[in-house]
Amino acid sequence: MRQNPSFAMSDVGEIRRLIEQNPWVTIVSSTENGLVASHYAVLLDADRDDLTIVGHVGKPDDLVHGLGERELLVVVQGPHGYISPGWYGDVQSVPTWNFVSAHLSGVPELLTPEENLQVLERLVARFEGGLPQPRLMWEPPNDPEYVRRLERGTVGFRLTPTKVVAKRKLSQNKPDETVETVITELEAGESPYADPRLPAEMRRDLETRKAAR
């Protein structure tokens, strides 16, 4: 991802928030047979306060990616959406796309079976937690053998990135009143290609920049 100083996101807390809110990621690696991409959910490592993530892949994706042997690129995609030039007023302009995204690169560490079980348990708890009747991993009708058999079909990993490129492109290069107009248009549903979270992200960014002036 090409970086632009105007849109660079370097605050670890903000990148952690991005990962926490957007756990479904794309994992890319370069192999003898070309590029390979897979899609899995990840979590921030509960024992760290940096950008270390934990997750798992289903077998044989571990072999396909050379997990633990090759560098991985993990793409975290946050809110994004199309921005019409008509929202900028009567000025020369072109369409663009606002987005928040982070790329984490590094060679992952393979987890032990017990560590992998803990990650699987956390993943289930995370996504079941918001349901009215959550079904946690160890609860009936699952029995311990079923859960351990499930674990044996996966390979857990921990990735502490050695390179991070994060970008927040939210019309920061436009006047505040233009940003307000774009937010209003997005909130009104005027773009059929926008994540409904995008205007809230733009509002948060605008207020943060105003407060820093």
Results as ranks from 00 to 15, higher is better:
residue 2 R to I: 11
residue 2 R to D: 08
residue 3 Q to R: 10
residue 5 P to Y: 00
residue 5 P to S: 09
residue 6 S to D: 15
residue 6 S to F: 13
residue 11 D to L: 02
residue 14 E to T: 01
residue 15 I to L: 02
residue 17 R to K: 14
residue 18 L to Y: 01
residue 24 W to H: 11
residue 24 W to R: 10
residue 25 V to I: 14
residue 25 V to A: 06
residue 26 T to Y: 09
residue 27 I to W: 03
residue 28 V to Q: 06
residue 30 S to D: 10
residue 30 S to R: 11
residue 30 S to T: 06
residue 32 E to F: 03
residue 34 G to D: 12
residue 34 G to W: 07
residue 35 L to Y: 07
residue 37 A to V: 08
residue 37 A to E: 12
residue 39 H to W: 09
residue 40 Y to R: 12
residue 40 Y to A: 09
residue 41 A to T: 13
residue 43 L to H: 02
residue 45 D to K: 08
residue 45 D to I: 06
residue 45 D to V: 02
residue 46 A to T: 09
residue 47 D to G: 15
residue 47 D to E: 15
residue 47 D to T: 13
residue 48 R to P: 00
residue 48 R to K: 11
residue 52 T to H: 05
residue 52 T to R: 07
residue 53 I to Q: 06
residue 53 I to A: 00
residue 54 V to N: 08
residue 57 V to A: 08
residue 58 G to E: 14
residue 59 K to P: 01
residue 59 K to T: 08
residue 63 L to E: 15
residue 64 V to R: 15
residue 65 H to K: 03
residue 68 G to H: 07
residue 71 E to F: 04
residue 71 E to V: 12
residue 72 L to F: 06
residue 74 V to W: 04
residue 75 V to I: 14
residue 75 V to W: 05
residue 75 V to Q: 11
residue 76 V to I: 14
residue 77 Q to F: 02
residue 79 P to F: 04
residue 81 G to M: 10
residue 82 Y to F: 15
residue 84 S to E: 02
residue 84 S to R: 06
residue 86 G to F: 03
residue 90 D to I: 00
residue 91 V to Q: 10
residue 92 Q to R: 13
residue 96 T to E: 12
residue 97 W to D: 09
residue 98 N to H: 14
residue 98 N to M: 06
residue 107 V to Y: 04
residue 107 V to L: 03
residue 107 V to Q: 08
residue 108 P to G: 07
residue 110 L to Y: 03
residue 111 L to I: 05
residue 113 P to V: 04
residue 115 E to W: 04
residue 116 N to Y: 03
residue 117 L to T: 06
residue 118 Q to D: 15
residue 119 V to A: 05
residue 121 E to L: 09
residue 121 E to Q: 13
residue 122 R to A: 15
residue 123 L to Q: 13
residue 126 R to I: 00
residue 128 E to A: 12
residue 128 E to M: 09
residue 129 G to H: 12
residue 130 G to P: 05
residue 132 P to S: 13
residue 134 P to A: 12
residue 134 P to K: 10
residue 136 L to H: 14
residue 141 P to D: 09
residue 141 P to E: 09
residue 142 N to V: 01
residue 142 N to Q: 13
residue 144 P to Y: 10
residue 145 E to D: 15
residue 146 Y to I: 07
residue 149 R to I: 04
residue 150 L to V: 09
residue 150 L to P: 00
residue 153 G to F: 03
residue 155 V to H: 02
residue 155 V to L: 06
residue 155 V to P: 01
residue 156 G to F: 03
residue 157 F to G: 05
residue 158 R to Y: 04
residue 158 R to D: 01
residue 163 K to E: 12
residue 170 L to A: 06
residue 175 P to Q: 07
residue 176 D to S: 11
residue 178 T to F: 08
residue 180 E to P: 00
residue 182 V to Q: 07
residue 183 I to L: 07
residue 186 L to K: 14
residue 189 G to E: 00
residue 190 E to F: 07
residue 191 S to E: 05
residue 193 Y to A: 10
residue 193 Y to P: 01
residue 194 A to D: 03
residue 199 P to C: 06
residue 200 A to F: 04
residue 201 E to P: 00
residue 203 R to M: 05
residue 203 R to S: 14
residue 203 R to T: 13
residue 203 R to D: 07
residue 204 R to F: 06
residue 206 L to M: 13
residue 206 L to E: 10
residue 206 L to N: 05
residue 207 E to Y: 09
residue 208 T to A: 15
residue 208 T to H: 14
residue 210 K to N: 09
residue 213 R to S: 14
residue 213 R to E: 14
